[in-house]
């Protein structure tokens, strides 16, 4: 019983370390898109691990903790995707290290084609 609780506590500790690293990535990364990469997703993983560790400590709480884990896991990719897409459309710049940008190339093509049709 006691060992199970310690296992849960260690999982929770790993989750909080992941949260800390996610926040560190948020501070260190050069542009918005890389911040989303490290920030929101490492922190989602960290919170899921933190809550999963509590399942071992309080088996009676399993139902609500599973709901929270599923909710965080489903809602966060959606919100970060929507934010990144709309920020890209609003023109938030990419970092200078960026190697390739297929979306900009394709958007350019689309903007050019209707103009040609109009002329």
């Amino acid at each position: 019983m006691e060992t199970l609780k310690i296992i849960g506590a260690v999982i929770t500790l790993m989750g909080s370390i992941a949260l800390l690293l996610g926040a560190l990535g948020l501070v260190r990364m050069p542009d918005l898109y890389n911040r989303i990469q490290t920030g929101t997703k490492a922190s989602t993983f960290g919170t899921m691990l933190t809550l999963f560790g509590l399942v071992f400590i309080f088996p009676g709480w399993t139902g609500k903790l599973i709901i929270l884990i599923l909710f965080v896991g489903i809602s966060n990719p959606v919100s970060s995707h929507v934010l990144a897409r709309n920020a890209y459309r609003a023109g938030v710049p990419l970092t200078g290290k960026t190697t390739v940008d297929r979306l900009a190339e394709d958007m350019e093509k689309k903007n050019v084609e209707p103009k040609n049709d109009a002329q």
Binding site: A23, T40, T50, L51, L54, L65, S80
Partner: peptide
Amino acid sequence: VIAFDVMTIASIGLIGL
């Protein structure tokens, strides 16, 4: 907004603790 998102997600874990 991204910083706010990370703060609230971390707070969910904190509320669990």
